[in-house]
């Protein structure tokens, strides 16, 4: 009996430290954010729960502009990164011998923090940057300032490029291993069944690695959707991404803006969860073979 009971509780005992950290600090943080978004903020004398701040935020035009801008950056960077990463992974899978140089090189950006990536891309692509100088020297531009503004602009091309520089290697890494296993296992069977290399990719490798492709790109999407530093540093002044907008409300000296900040971040979180959820449902339907 004693033994049975220990066996029953064993997984919970093993999980206890992790759950303690996650429940207290993660769920705790989430709960506080939620409470504050409903206007419960005893420190400044707000004790009643209300939807006042939600209606205030959702009623603003800036909210929709901000949501659209955030979605635009995440969607474009994730979609492009995913496509390029799949192309790259497939290229590596089809190499006859493993190219150690490529293998090392493409992983390098994964070890580079986003801030450093941002700094490097700015040095490269800003209006006074390296590329602008080359264009100027080649006579394509009359002065470096004619280089199209990629940063602080509503097109957010600079931000998207930074994300792509970071995320392509990450998705490639996650997808390559899976693709390579599938290709090794089933590629030969497919090619004796008259599948050309192209057929092998589209009919076998790609559909079977879809789950890992989707999970990698979902992680990337969620990250860029909620990321703060890069849009804060290099984003347009209007619209701001949701996270930046929330932060500006949070640091405002007027403490009454705190609940607004919480509303924005809760909305941000909800969209993140919703979109990733849609992603996963999509994946489940795709994987009907069980």
């Amino acid at each position: 009996m004693q033994n049975n009971l220990t066996a029953y509780y064993k997984p919970y005992m093993l999980l206890a430290p992790a759950l303690l950290v996650l429940v207290v600090f993660f769920l705790g943080g989430l709960a506080f954010a939620l409470l504050q978004s409903f206007g419960y903020f005893p420190v400044i004398g707000l004790n009643k729960l209300s939807l006042e701040y939600y209606s205030k935020v959702l009623g603003q035009r800036e909210f929709y502009a901000s949501l659209g801008f955030t979605f635009y950056i995440s969607f474009v960077s994730t979609a492009l990164s995913t496509i390029v990463a799949i192309y790259l992974a497939n290229y590596m899978v089809n190499l006859k011998r493993k190219n150690k140089f490529i293998d090392f090189l493409y992983k390098l950006p994964i070890a580079v923090p986003h801030i450093v990536a941002a700094l490097m891309v700015v040095f490269l692509l800003s209006q006074g940057g390296f590329v602008a100088r080359i264009f100027f020297k080649l006579g394509l531009l009359n002065e470096t300032a004619q280089f199209p503004p990629l940063f602080y602009s509503r097109s957010a091309i600079g931000i998207i490029l930074i994300y792509m520089w970071k995320e392509i290697p990450f998705i490639t890494l996650m997808v390559y291993t899976v693709m390579n296993n599938i290709h090794k296992r089933l590629g030969e069977a497919a090619s004796t069944l008259k599948a050309s290399p192209r057929d092998v990719f589209y009919q076998v490798t790609l559909p079977l690695s879809m789950p890992s492709i989707i999970s990698a790109s979902a992680i990337v999407f969620a990250f860029s959707f909620g990321a703060f530093e890069i849009p804060y540093l290099l984003g347009a002044s209007y619209p701001k991404t949701l996270s930046v907008w929330a932060y500006f409300n949070y640091i405002s000296p007027d403490l009454l803006n705190r609940p607004v900040a919480m509303v924005i971040s809760i909305v941000l979180t909800s969209f993140c969860v919703l979109l990733v959820g849609v992603y996963y449902v999509f994946m489940k339907n795709l994987r009907q073979w069980g």
């Binding site: 030969e188 090619s191 069944l193």
Partner: peptide, 16 residues
């Protein structure tokens, strides 16, 4: 392989 008139059945079936 894909252009030969020869087909191979593998040890562990390898059904897709």
């Amino acid at each position: 392989a894909e252009k030969r008139d020869i087909v191979m059945v593998f040890q562990d079936h390898l059904l897709f």
